[in-house]
């Protein structure tokens, strides 16, 4: 493989992973914006989505329905999680809430081990094992699916938050919860919805990546953490910036893996996280005017 085709290959693999991170990162941003909670269990929604979908497909349910079913199921799990773990502790300190979400992540992982065991599973690609040849690089159609589906999700979310009544209500709660309440919008109900939508996005991410990298009970940890980095790079409340952050991380990782060594991949992503946190705590896209008193 010559240099150019390797570059394209790595670029596509980075874009694929980046789009997965972006979906999960969007979940972070939505949950954080609405509830003020950084949900460390977000990555595990991806794991649940992937494994559920595999189970549905293996039991003979048509692919499209299996995907929808698993997304809806994970949304329900997300809603349940919000009611049982987040809602009762909503007045606790932020650190407590973070730790609660860590606990929830453990529970999800444990349940997954209970149901699926620790072995990895495979999901067949959405549209067969075709591949395209782009200047010598082999691009699986699944990679294209991943990129396309995440783009569709971004557009759908954009329309939802900017054009629909409910979406605008959620946005209002984020911007000014007090005014929103005066307008008859109940911010607390939005919390349930936000976590559920985030869970659904996570599930979709897991399903999309499963044919590329397989699925197992612990796949959510790294997906979640990387998406986290993406969200932080973007500034935690800025969805487009989080998406951009996700693609930066995805591409950075693909190139680190391709040109340096796969071992240091995680260290580089987290090194970037520390750099951003220490030197640009409002995200790399924030204007420098932000004052922190």
């Amino acid at each position: 493989m010559d240099g150019w085709s390797q570059f394209v290959q790595l670029l596509f693999s980075g874009l694929t992973v980046g789009s997965i991170y972006a979906l999960v990162a969007l979940g972070f941003v939505i949950t954080y914006s609405v509830t003020g909670i950084l949900n460390l269990a977000q990555g595990d929604f991806a794991m649940l989505g992937a494994l559920l979908c595999i189970t549905f497909v293996n039991s003979g349910i048509p692919f499209v329905i299996a995907i929808l079913l698993s997304v809806v199921a994970v949304m329900a799990v997300g809603g349940l999680f919000e009611r049982l773990a987040i809602h009762p502790a909503r007045n606790s300190s932020i650190a407590t809430l973070i730790i609660i979400t860590i606990g929830a992540a453990f529970v999800f992982r444990g349940i997954a081990i209970f149901i699926w065991g620790t072995q990895p599973y495979a999901l067949r690609p959405f549209t067969g094992n075709h591949s395209l040849n782009v200047v010598g690089a082999v691009i699986q159609t699944q990679n294209l699916w991943a990129i396309a589906l995440s783009l569709v999700s971004f557009i759908a979310l954009y329309i939802f938050f900017n054009k629909t009544y409910i979406g605008k209500a959620v946005t209002a709660c984020v911007v000014n919860p007090f005014a929103a309440r005066l307008m008859g919008i109940e911010p607390r109900k939005m919390s349930l919805g936000a976590v559920a939508v985030s869970a659904g996005l996570g599930a979709l991410a897991g399903i999309v990546i499963a044919p590329v990298s397989g699925a197992s009970y612990d796949m959510g940890v790294m997906i979640g953490l990387k998406a986290f980095i993406a969200a932080v790079i973007g500034g935690l409340t800025n969805a487009p910036a989080a998406i951009a952050g996700a693609f930066i991380i995805g591409i950075l990782e693909a190139f680190t893996e391709g040109y340096l060594s796969s071992g240091y991949k995680d260290a580089i992503s987290f090194g970037l996280l520390l750099l951003v946190l220490f030197f640009m705590p409002n995200g790399i896209f924030a204007k420098m005017s932000g004052k922190r008193v």
């Binding site: 773990a85 009762p88 502790a89 606790s92 407590t96 730790i99 609660i100 860590i102 606990g103 929830a104 992540a105 453990f106 529970v107 999800f108 992982r109 444990g110 349940i111 081990i113 209970f114 620790t118 009970y217």
Partner: peptide
């Protein structure tokens, strides 16, 4: 690995 589910639950319950 299954024990993590218990510790996760314990963590959530204690904190709440």
């Amino acid at each position: 690995e299954f024990e993590i589910v218990f510790f996760g639950l314990l963590l959530v319950i204690i904190l709440i």
